[in-house]
Nucleic acid binder design. Structure first.
Length: 359
DNA sequence: AAGCCGGGGTG
DNA sequence: CACCCAGGCTT
């Protein structure tokens, strides 16, 4: 009872008001922030957001750009389909909406990469539309406050939460939707956190079921996570006169659209893998293996440094490019590849990096 | 309904 | 290390 107005009152006094995407009603800026913030924390997003906005200040600038020019500004953020969809949206808005962002949450949902919650957030912030959100923060706040057990990603539980979200808005005529939506996010991000919720400072503590029953640690119910599989790959660091050979990853798929190192099966060897690309190895150095963990599997990477003489390449299914060391910064590289190449460049290709020498 | 898609922060 | 984060799309 009285849920939404209390959230608003708390937000105005204790919420966040100076995030880079606040204090604007520009749908473009709001939209960009919502996409970047999908499954990504605020502190991670901020520098990406600033860089992106500087390069693409409005939907016209983004729509006029090639996707190729967009990807470097997303490299390292993850979920690269978000960037591809963002660019598709901009093209679509310029073509189908006369350059104006769609005026309702329902219309916004038709755009690629924007679901119900993201559309509602954009509509609430930009237009004040009375559409509720249901993101990770809201799921945590609601499951605790209303004592909803069960994995929130399950359809049945999620439907209950959507119904609760709708009910809170309907029960509050004249609600300031921007403040309410921001308040839910702020509460989840700053007080009703996963680990140690600050119930002593929470404006909803007196009506919170989890608080009453001492079940804050059990809600929201954890999802049962299966053991993640292990995968293994070898990567070729083909090097010629200070440049590295990069291949553009196909989409869809992991790292789609990013530039990565050529890979070969662990059963094969770096020399034949290099020759398969039309390159003759001068040497081959096994670099230190390392692991990279994704949400759904762990990838063991075994990199080989292979200096080559000729740079004539064979026909390849993937776009390929020789990239000088000092131009790597401008390329859209997967995080582990960036780390690997940066390490090589920073160390000046010194032998200390090699676990084993020539084989 | 379940799997796919990343990287980083947190405890 | 496990778990989670301003989720959405495909199968």
């Amino acid at each position: 009872m009285d849920f939404a107005p209390r959230i608003v009152a708390w937000q105005r006094q204790h919420g966040r008001h100076d995030l880079p995407w606040q204090n604007t009603r520009d749908p473009y800026r709001i939209w960009l922030s919502e996409i970047m913030l999908q499954q990504t924390q605020v502190a991670t997003v901020i520098p990406y957001y600033e860089r992106f906005l500087q390069r693409f200040p409005d939907v016209a600038a983004l729509g006029a750009a090639d996707q190729e020019d967009v990807m470097p500004y997303w490299a390292g953020l993850g979920y690269y389909a978000r960037a591809r969809n963002l660019h598709r949206c901009a093209v679509e808005i310029m073509r189908d909406w006369n350059g104006r962002f769609p005026p309702t949450a329902e219309a916004i949902t038709t755009l690629p990469g924007i679901g119900r919650s993201t559309a509602a957030a954009i509509a609430a912030f930009a237009y004040g539309e009375r559409s509720p959100i249901l993101d990770g923060n809201v799921k945590r706040v609601f499951t605790r406050h209303f004592g909803i057990a069960g994995d929130p990603s399950k359809r049945e539980v999620e439907q209950r939460l959507w119904a609760l979200a709708e009910a809170q808005v309907e029960a509050a005529p004249g609600l300031d939707m921007a403040s309410y939506t921001q308040g839910l996010m702020d509460l989840g991000a700053t007080l009703c956190t996963r680990g140690k919720p600050a119930c002593d400072r929470c404006p909803m503590a007196d009506s919170c079921i989890a608080r009453r029953d001492g079940r804050q640690a059990e809600l929201p119910t954890r999802k049962v996570r299966k053991a993640i599989p292990e995968r293994e790959t070898c990567m070729l660091v083909l090097q010629h006169e200070g440049s590295f050979l990069l291949q553009q990853r196909p989409e869809p798929g992991i790292w789609g659209g990013l530039w990565s190192l050529p890979e070969f099966d662990v059963a094969d060897d770096p020399d034949s893998a290099s020759r398969a690309l039309g390159l003759e190895p001068e040497q081959r150095y096994e670099l230190a293996a390392f692991a990279h963990t994704f949400t759904h599997y762990r990838l063991h990477i075994r990199p080989w440094l292979v200096p080559v003489r000729a740079v004539s390449l064979r026909e390849s299914a993937l776009p390929e490019r020789w990239v000088p060391a000092d131009k790597l910064e401008s390329m859209a590289l997967p995080a582990p590849v960036k780390k690997l190449l940066q390490g090589l460049v920073d160390a000046g290709m010194q032998n200390s990096l090699f676990t084993t020498s020539k084989t």
